[in-house]
Computed example of a mutant assay.
Amino acid sequence: MKYRSVYGLTHPLAQLLQHQFAACWTEAAPDVLVPVPLHRRRLWQREFD
């Protein structure tokens, strides 16, 4: 998905991640998840964060 721009996989992946987060964080779920942005040059190279 990341390197071949297969965007049709984003929704199934999001569902799997949501299920896994719910299974792992049953008692002490985080209040927020914060992404750490890439440097502009690295973002340009990868096209994804």
Rank of each mutant, 00 (worst) to 15 (best):
A14I: 05
L17R: 12
L38R: 05
Y7N: 13
W44T: 08
T26K: 15
E27I: 06
V6Q: 12
Q45G: 02
P37M: 03
C24G: 00
V32P: 00
F21I: 07
T10Q: 15
L38S: 14
P37F: 04
V6G: 01
A22G: 07
R42D: 06
P12N: 03
E27S: 01
V6L: 14
Q18I: 06
S5A: 14
V6P: 00
G8D: 09
G8F: 04
V34Y: 10
V32E: 09
R46L: 03
W25A: 14
P30E: 01
W25T: 08
R4N: 15
R4P: 02
A28V: 00
A14P: 02
G8W: 04
R41M: 01
L43Q: 11
T26N: 09
R41P: 00
A29N: 06
D49M: 06
A14D: 03
L38A: 14
L43E: 07
P30M: 03
T10M: 15
W25V: 00
E47I: 04
S5K: 11
H39F: 05
A23N: 10
P35T: 08
P30T: 00
D31E: 14
Q20N: 06
P12M: 01
V32W: 01
V36N: 01
Q20Y: 00
P37T: 00
C24I: 15
P37H: 04
M1H: 10
C24H: 12
Q15R: 15
H11P: 04
R42A: 03
Q15S: 06
H19M: 10
R46F: 00
H39N: 08
M1N: 05
V34T: 12
P30N: 01
V36Y: 05
Q20R: 09
H19N: 12
D31I: 05
S5D: 08
D49V: 05
S5V: 04
V34L: 13
R42H: 05
H11M: 11
L13M: 14
D31C: 11
Y7E: 10
T26F: 03
E27G: 02
E27Y: 07
L16P: 00
R41K: 08
T26I: 03
Q18Y: 14
L9T: 10
L38G: 03
T26M: 05
H39V: 01
S5Q: 11
E27N: 12
V36I: 13
S5N: 14
P30C: 02
R4V: 06
F21A: 09
R41D: 10
Q15D: 12
W44K: 13
V32Q: 07
A22N: 15
R42F: 00
R41C: 02
R42T: 10
L13D: 03
A23F: 01
R40I: 02
P37L: 13
L38W: 05
